[in-house]
């Protein structure tokens, strides 16, 4: 049985996530005057259509691109020495200290409670088209995996093979991978919630809603 209280305490002890903002590609970096301790906002709007706070501009081949915050939080550390220089891809620009939101706490606790179906090997994973369509139409929880159900397409070295689900029956509660991204072997792909667990999960959600206080 899951000790929700203990896990909550544990998370409360370190309620932050450090997000490193790195350059997506090469180019000349130009900060916009942010200082450590400044607050930044993540994407907003009803459809997340408004980008987050502008952190820096990256210019490559006369094409100036904004780098925006992906989560809200505090700017903790800026590599100000890079201002105006040409940087390689994947260089750290600054770090955002992000206070976990209720949803994220729930997700973290659930990751321990749910049955996790993991990637058997490092590869790119996709849902099979039918399941993909179902998820797009009715959300993740509309999919009910059964033992032996073909759910994924594994793309590895440009070869694609189907992958069947194995594990208890239930509903998909969470999807942990981005379609088309590389997933390491052993990383969870989906979290499946068994019928019997539904009350437990409700309990987790209620508790977090009640006990977790969000901070900006």
């Amino acid at each position: 049985m899951l000790n929700v209280k203990e896990m909550l305490e544990e998370l409360k002890a370190s309620p932050y996530e450090e997000i490193e903002v790195v350059t997506p590609h090469t180019g000349v970096i130009e900060f916009v005057g942010l200082k450590p301790g400044d607050r930044v906002a993540g994407p907003g709007g009803k459809w997340n259509e408004k980008p987050g706070t502008l952190l820096a501009n990256l210019t490559r081949e006369k094409n100036k691109k904004p780098i925006c915050a992906t989560q809200k939080g505090l700017v903790t550390d800026i590599a100000a020495g890079l201002e105006g220089t040409f940087v390689e891809a994947g260089v750290r620009l600054l770090t955002i200290r992000h206070f976990l939101s209720k949803d994220e706490v729930i997700a973290r606790i659930l990751k321990k409670a749910l049955y996790l179906f993991c990637a058997p090997e490092r590869a790119k994973y996709y849902f099979v088209p039918e399941i993909d369509a179902k998820i797009k139409a009715g959300g993740e929880q509309s999919v009910k995996p059964r033992e032996g159900m073909e759910m994924f397409i594994v793309s590895r070295m440009k070869r694609e093979t189907p992958l069947a689900y194995s594990g208890p029956e239930g509903i998909v509660y969470a999807v942990y991978f981005q379609q088309g991204d590389n997933v390491d072997g052993g990383q969870p792909l989906i979290g499946v919630c068994q019928e019997s667990q539904l009350t437990l999960i409700q309990d987790v959600v209620n508790r977090v809603q009640g006990e977790w206080e969000e901070q900006d």
Binding site: P24, H25, T26, G27, R60, E61, N63, E88, A89, G90
Partner: peptide, 13 residues
């Protein structure tokens, strides 16, 4: 270091 070998802009930059 660049993002991807397929991104020509990276190479020219």
């Amino acid at each position: 270091r660049i993002r991807s070998y397929q991104d020509a802009s990276e190479i020219f930059a």
